[in-house]
Design a protein around this nucleic acid. Structure first.
Lengths: 250, 250
DNA sequence: ATAACCAAGTTGCCTGACAAGTAGGAAATT
DNA sequence: AATTTCCTACTTGTCAGGCAACTTGGTTAT
């Protein structure tokens, strides 16, 4: 049988010989320029952008390319267009889209900042989950905890089960914003670890330590003890950050 | 007049655009469709998307429109394109862009969720700011506190000064993610209040209460007392949420 | 068997055109 | 003279077709 999908040789954050992806497209750079015009304040809210024709001439690109660039700003809520009238800078207070862009994940400080945000979100999420979880959600959390234990017992790293455990908790907050943001940050950080160092480095007591911390979180959730849940989550995240630092050291 | 109409029969190649429906724009709706294919898991990471030509025929839109839609997915990090090869679904772990989309801000529950996230982010930010603030940043925070007091004394609502006060705090965390996210949520919520009800409703003791809570936060930051700073911020945010609920009640 | 090469396929970008909608001024009416 | 109606230029939304740059897999030459 023939394979239709080829491995996309995806460039992750690991700095290969090539810079990230290709060189940015024309629309990419143009979008950045226009965005700069807005955030810098040279174009004020409500003000009308130049017409596509004018921008096209100014920057020496075709109209479709200009449209692509403006389309992104529109997608990000920075401008609104009205057919026949033009494109206008949106009111900052009415912008309903927030973009969290981790541009440079090899930057040490950026990692620190991301982890810090992750800790804040997940600690609070765990606190809320402890109070709000339904019986069904509690069962789901327990199942993930058991699955993690089973993986550890088999001598595996249990990274996937670890992710699933945390995900089942943030799910129990009932707040999709917590869930999605936590999910994103978690995946991002873990993916970094995965590429930075082999997961096998985790075996050797670490998995057991992680599991013990998980158990503490779970116990607090069972008791619906918000304060204890937060404390346990903070402790776990602090330790996780230390383990991450271990990976980074060498 | 060169604008004479032509027989509409030439559209025959397009197989009824009803497939997509008439949303905001063809590219908009198409982008949503394709995004759904990815997040739902029908298209797995690494898998190749249909060619622009095929998508164009499937959905009955032109290739430029398809390009615009794919361009957005690319912008959001969901797909990666390689000239000559095709477009591929990105590895979720490698996605470096997070979109927080407040679709329906009139939904009561969505407001609650957003405020909850705001509280989590800003309470932690205040805690960090208390420990890390430089002398210069402390001066800036104090200046905003004074400006707010002056506004209140003049009988104004001091909403703008209020925003500036919080902004100077999250700035002192030294973490741009906290700053930007807090800034966005704050603006969004306040803008909602602004439109939901006249700001003058705030006058009448409320401003003084707000100011007292601000003072408590500031005092804790002066002492570099992280726990007290968090407690004061949580108290302030809880009260602010109550005041917001007051607006919403009627 | 291995390496060089070629042709089909795909994305990136362009030009040109028309449809749909907007806004301001000219023309008609009161 | 003031008001309403209508027309026209302008702008965005969409389409069609085409060429260049690049990838891929099979074919040919060594």
């Amino acid at each position: 049988m023939s394979r239709t999908a080829k491995p996309p040789e995806q460039r992750s954050t690991a700095p290969s010989r090539d810079i990230i992806g290709r060189g940015p497209s024309l629309a990419d750079t143009l979008a950045l320029r226009l965005k700069d015009e807005i955030v810098s304040g040279r174009l004020r809210p409500g003000e009308k952008l130049a017409t596509e024709q004018q921008i096209s001439e100014t920057y020496g690109v075709s109209r479709p390319t200009v449209r692509e660039a403006i389309g992104r700003l529109k997608h990000d809520g920075l401008v609104i267009t009205r057919q026949g009238a033009g494109a206008f800078v949106a009111d900052p207070g009415a912008v309903s889209v927030f973009r969290l862009d981790i541009a440079d994940f090899s930057n040490r400080e950026e990692i620190r900042n991301i982890v810090e945000l992750l800790m804040a979100v997940e600690a609070t999420a765990t606190e809320h989950a402890a109070v709000r979880r339904t019986k069904g959600e509690l069962k789901a959390i327990e199942a993930q905890l058991r699955a993690m234990q089973a993986a550890v017992d088999r001598g595996e790293t249990g990274v996937d089960e670890d992710v699933a455990f945390h995900r089942s908790i943030v799910e129990a907050t009932g707040n999709p914003f917590f869930r999605d943001l936590s999910d994103f940050l978690d995946r991002r950080v873990r993916n970094f670890i995965r590429t930075a160092r082999s997961n096998t480095a985790r075996i050797g007591g670490m998995a057991q330590a992680v599991q013990a911390e998980h158990q503490a979180i779970f116990d607090a959730i069972v008791r619906k003890d918000a304060a204890a849940a937060r404390a346990a989550a903070e402790n776990h995240l602090r330790n996780a950050a230390s383990r991450l630092a271990l990976y980074l050291e060498r």
